[in-house]
Design a protein around this nucleic acid. Structure first.
Lengths: 209, 209
DNA sequence: TCCGGCAGACTAACCAGTCGGTATGTCGCG
DNA sequence: CGCGACATACCGACTGGTTAGTCTGCCGGA
């Protein structure tokens, strides 16, 4: 990799009239996401992030309180995205098996669409400060519960097999979602939608009475 | 340069004397396993490991070529254990659904019994040197294929639903196995065997024709 | 005497975060 | 309209602390 020192005043970046200019905070998030996913949080230096984003440490610490903050933002972004989507599916006016099926498939597609975020999510939880970790866990729990309630509703109304505790069913499914970042390759045989359909099928079949 | 050290553990001589004397290499492995699991590989210093094992750096580098080697040994230990167990179940003289069911349940129990190893396994793969990583991946692929062949056999003979690609079925199940270290607590409601039975049930139900 | 097994001081590298400094923008006001 | 005052956005050298791995040498048993 070339390591061009940013020449003061010599940069051709920024301020084009066309919409190509990405704000610095977003450039930093994007660079951090890619690097954290590739090398892991602890193996990525702040210097590497700012170089990848074409700025310096001064800029990073102007917008973020710490390296840890950057990671927290990545968590927040994915959590908000997935919670919003789940809420939409869970609130729909449909039979519960439809709602669960669509929610289960959607989280797979969303995870594959944000595979870097997902990889970071499951690998770097313990790099967050205890306080931020607690917050992430709390949000995660809300998500989990929302999903679990769908399973529970189906079991209560008899459309799902009630032999397995609903929390365990949710962990079973999210294990496979979690695992996606370990094996799914964008250049593989199956499209994200196909994978999602298969995994949702497996879940629904496992829940047949 | 790291001289290639002999693999510890194998022919380690046991010190005669007081009954509780555990050989140094094993003490180091045990300390490293606990610490890597608790704090993560990068956040654990070699100094902490040797202190926990009651020795010094000299001892560690006498038996292991590097910190990375220690991690590799942990991977090797779990891989060998699980491969041996899977082979035993897969080779049994039983109908394929029995063999798969027992193998699927066993890997859950074994994972819970070695939860620290499992946590390290799925969290620290990318901290291994590329070379060791390749080796671990190769061994794991063998394991995966052995498991997949059971699914495939059942699908071919019509006792399993053939709608889902067998590789995907294996990833589905192992996703949930890996995920165990994220949610299973020894002081929770379910015993390891109960969790194993539930997860095996889910898998087998998902595979019903 | 020799050697495996181990002690522990040492080094070279690295890194998160700080801080004083500069450039550009904007607002109030005469 | 012009000008000072303050703010925002960023730069990059520097600091204090940490760490993996090395190396010399001691010690006790064969």
């Amino acid at each position: 990799m070339a390591t061009p020192k940013t020449t003061p005043g010599g940069g051709a970046k920024e301020k084009a009239g066309a919409g190509g200019a990405v704000p610095v905070p977003q450039r930093l998030m994007a660079a951090a996401t890619r690097l954290f996913s590739e090398r892991g949080y602890d193996r990525t230096s702040v210097q590497e992030i700012v170089e990848a984003a074409g700025v310096t440490k001064g800029a990073l610490y102007h917008y973020f309180g710490s390296k840890d903050d950057l990671l927290h933002e990545i968590y927040g972004r994915l959590l908000r995205l997935q919670q919003d989507r789940l809420d939409a599916y869970a609130d729909a006016e449909q039979p519960v098996e439809q709602r669960l099926r669509r929610a289960a498939a959607d989280v797979v597609v969303t995870t594959i669409d944000n595979l870097d975020d997902a990889r970071i999510f499951f690998r770097s939880m313990h790099q967050l400060s205890p306080e931020k970790q607690k917050q992430v866990r709390a949000e995660r729990r809300l998500y989990h519960e929302r999903f679990r309630d769908l399973v529970q509703e189906g079991q209560r109304t008899g459309v799902f097999n009630a032999a397995t505790p609903p929390d365990l069913v949710v962990d079973y499914h999210f294990g496979s979602v979690h695992h996606l970042s370990s094996w799914y390759r964008p250049d593989g045989r199956l499209t994200p939608q196909q994978v999602a359909d298969h995994l949702a099928d497996l879940l629904l079949r496992a829940l047949r009475p």
